[in-house]
Design a protein around this nucleic acid. Sequence first.
DNA 1: ATAAAGTACTTTATATATTAAAGTACAATT
DNA 2: AATTGTACTTTAATATATAAAGTACTTTAT
Lengths: 98, 98
Amino acid sequence: MSEFDYQQLDDIIHSRIRLAIMALLVSVESATFVYIREKVNTSDGNLSVHIRKLEDVNYVSSTKKFIDRKPVTTFKISVLGQSAFEEYVNRLSDLINH
Amino acid sequence: MSEFDYQQLDDIIHSRIRLAIMALLVSVESATFVYIREKVNTSDGNLSVHIRKLEDVNYVSSTKKFIDRKPVTTFKISVLGQSAFEEYVNRLSDLINH
DNA sequence: ATAAAGTACTTTATATATTAAAGTACAATT
DNA sequence: AATTGTACTTTAATATATAAAGTACTTTAT
């Protein structure tokens, strides 16, 4: 197994936007859709599509409720997501520092 | 400018395969097509397409010659490529370690 | 009360990128 | 001379990312 094998990097995480979402989510208890959208500086559509992918593989979970009569979706990284992120960072580090 | 802004990451470099190519090339004086193909564990077609993109933006240069009557293409990271890579790594580090 | 503007998303369409397959131009081997 | 192999490049298929449009409201202004 070569030290420069790009396939070692989890390609669900390795997308600029999803990487930013994951980096944000590992650093907080939970975050709302709007908060994430602002922090990663993207559009509603992009965030919706990409965070869905993270949910599909169970790296992230969501809960929906109403606050002040308005819909609020809150996201949280899962245990699986945390370890996938750690593994990703380790592989990235291997690649860059060879 | 938010600390989780994914657009800070150079998207020419941020592709698993191109990142691996760049990481390899910053660590050597130069490398042949075949050597890179083996180290990053990819197909000829993939390597050809992706390294061309790195050449197109002048992150990498190539020289072609014949060795033992066979074509050999050698690649080398440019000064621009080196600084783009460093900048990429710094932004990545900002994102991950926030 | 109604219309216009705003919020919090989701869905769909379009553009772009990645990967796989096929092709070119040889050299070496059988 | 035909087959196999090497070193790529090009084209085509597939997947991904982004932008645009849509839904279901709520709030504010008229």
